[in-house]
Nucleic acid binder design. Structure first.
Lengths: 254, 254
DNA sequence: TAGTGGTCTAGACCACTCC
DNA sequence: GAGTGGTCTAGACCACTAA
């Protein structure tokens, strides 16, 4: 049992303790409490959460307040709600949610999932760039993965992935699935919540050109992605170089 | 006075008319009603809307239902709500909201707004590509605008804009501001609600290279944007070609 | 002081799922 | 039929703004 704010019955919003700066709405406190539990793995992906009523009683708030927090977590794709069944921790290995972080689309418009082939894997001391992107200390080590990926049967992308070795113990020895983020969640308890991508146009190096079957110097799209977990820690750095002859990067702005 | 659904007092959600497929929640009907009014220009950008209570009485629903609709419109950046003051139609000519649709960022991280210089303007029959992107009929005409844009004082981008001439009467004779979308809203009553961007890497043509001060064949980022108004009509096609030596395209994925 | 949006509660009924 | 989330209402009090 863990009560929040002033709780209790009757109207009023009920300020939390303290008197100065800090005022967080109750629904925000509930949101953060549930988010912390998700980050700690109290509920695993695919598992069902207690019902709105149970959570409300446990936390000492009204059902409407719990609902508002659950709605926010659902909007962030961390939960899935199904009428008549319950509220579940989102699983991101589904066909459709592969495309949550994968913005490349075939010109043909086919919704085929990308295939992957691992070229290399190794553990090594982190480079300066890797320490910078991942917020690592000087002595830190990383696991590096290099892959080729194909869309619609056409190889179009080569990507270099760097992971903090301390967060992914033993990953170098595992079979790597096509969608790494479900592996991160299921094996290492790390849920990717946000990613920041920076795109540039570059000329292919001779080595990249060889792997992609293109001429050296050809223009290519470089995608520099840092992915963050529920605690907003940088967890993965991924540098992708992509041929965009039959493929483009799609972005919807609102 | 315009009432929605079954309205009235007491509990119950109240289904709308008909018996078969269609069921739209009341708050959704309110949302659509308000959206239609915005699209029709009933309230101009910057103007205040009636209060929650007034809207609730007018539409014959509870204040909570109106609130839910207003919150959704606020989340879509169409409204701005200010505690103690009221609800306003969003204005998108502010400094910070220039970056709503402009995703290029200087490597230096400076938040300086981009500058523009118009190279050419003309009206002409729509090309096949323009008809395709803008959903135009065979005889339609477009206004074309070509601009150079600079970030941090460095020219980095050349863009070709195509507008349906029927939607923008007389735009060829106007002074063009740096941020076109506020002009679209204020002079032509067209609010841009969504844009779809497709990014590719291309090699600079000799002409583009000349304008951008780079070598022909240099890799550049091509941004193909179609912008839609509140009625989801395609309203602008913009093809930008950008040097990404000191600039990148930033995207946040959730 | 009056009016606005923001938060919180309590309770009703509906739609869906499963037993 | 029991239990879940989804919708809707009514009413209270708080925080902020402006006159």
């Amino acid at each position: 049992m863990e009560r929040l704010g002033t709780g209790g019955s009757g109207g009023g919003s009920g300020r939390e303790g303290g008197e100065g700066v800090g005022f967080r709405p109750l629904y925000r406190q509930v949101h953060d409490t549930l988010l912390r539990r998700l980050a700690e793995g109290v509920w695993q992906p695919g598992q069902i959460l207690p019902s709105e009523g149970e959570l409300a009683r446990e936390l000492g708030v009204s059902q409407g307040t719990v609902r508002k927090a659950l709605d926010a977590l659902t909007a962030d794709s961390l939960l899935v709600r199904r009428q008549g069944r319950g509220t579940f921790v989102a699983e991101h290995d589904d066909k459709q949610s592969v495309f949550r972080f994968f913005k490349l689309r075939s010109e043909a418009g086919g919704e085929a999932a990308p295939e992957s082939r691992v070229l290399a894997r190794a553990e090594a001391p982190a480079s300066v760039d890797e320490r910078d992107r991942l917020g690592l200390v000087r002595q830190a080590r990383v696991v590096r993965i290099e892959r080729l990926r194909a869309l619609d049967g056409r190889v179009c992308l080569i990507e270099a992935i760097a992971l903090p070795a301390s967060l992914f113990p033993g990953i170098a020895a595992l079979d790597l699935p096509n969608t790494l983020y479900s592996l991160y969640a299921n094996r290492f308890g790390l849920t990717i919540a946000v990613a920041r991508e920076r795109l540039r146009a570059v000329a292919l190096s001779a080595r990249e050109a060889g792997h992609l079957g293109a001429a050296p110097g050809s223009p290519a799209l470089e995608i520099d992605r840092v992915a963050f977990d529920l605690d907003e820690r940088p967890v993965e750095w991924r540098l992708s170089t992509c041929l965009t002859e039959h493929v483009h990067y799609q972005s919807i702005l609102r």
